[in-house]
Amino acid sequence: MAPDVTTGALGGSLQRFLRWDVLVGVLLVFVFAGGLTGSPQFGNIDNLSFALGDLGEIALIALAMTLLVVAAEVDLSVASVLGLSSALVGNLWDAGWAIETIIPLVVVVGALCGLVNGLLVTRLGLPSLAVTIGTMALYRGLAYVVLGDRAVAGFPQQFTDLAVNDVPGTFIPYPVMLFVALAAVTGVVLHATGFGRSLFAIGAQVEAAHFAGIRVKRIKLILFVVASVVAAFAGVIYTFRYGSARADNGSGLEMAVIAAVLLGGVDFDGGKGTLGGVIAGVLLIGLLRNLLMLNDVSTEIQSIVTGLLLVISVITPRLVAAVRQRRRTPTLTTQPTPEG
């Protein structure tokens, strides 16, 4: 991925080496090496294939979430959209619909969910945190309304196979292949197109972006719709991968997604980040989860670890920035404004 972070005033090679996303990449290598030496099954192709597949939905949603966070927005409702999508798949399959009809319908519902998020944020000017915490409850609630606490299983094998099997001749599962393709597209969009440029401008200085003729509201609306569509499609994959449709599928997944994005060096205040960093962040979380699982650490501890990672990944960059700031200008109490 093209290195594209706007470095601060210092520049230089040391600064570049100390970039957050590079550090995460290095950490990733260490964890991988540690895993190889620490656990005999870890290096096993089957295990790696499983670990990648297990990451599929998080990785897919993280792509869309990266775009949102770069534009200084966030969507907490993605896991609920995933759950709603899963519940719809279950309910409609139970009612005798064909999977070929269900999938497009679910994606359309996803788009509607995103539209609601996006319109509330762009038309009413509400903070996306507040809106998506509301829709997080709303969409999860609707998932329960659709499917109750039932679990629907027995999906046709050709679809469940697609969600689990590897692409012939490789150890890469189909959903991961989809992720690779989408990641390439997202990388180009974010780092090489005018749309991507606009996202960084919006995130860094929304007013300047507006003054430069960038259609801020329209772009944000698109991002929310994309995020929900991806989440809805991830819900389909999730359902087939586990072979079970439930309303509470993927609950808590939003945290892993946001942790991966922030861990990858995307600034929560927007305007900074690289897709390469996010991919490293996703893989890091995936490998850690896998290692914990291989070492028979309970899922509870895994939840603690992911939660801690989220807190650490949001707090460390700020501490680093604060220390650096203090070292440079010991007396500065506010933003420097050298104007008359």
Partner: peptide, 10 residues
């Protein structure tokens, strides 16, 4: 600083 430029960009 707010409207004319994206201060942290090149």
């Amino acid at each position: 600083r707010q409207q004319g430029l994206v201060m942290e960009q090149s």
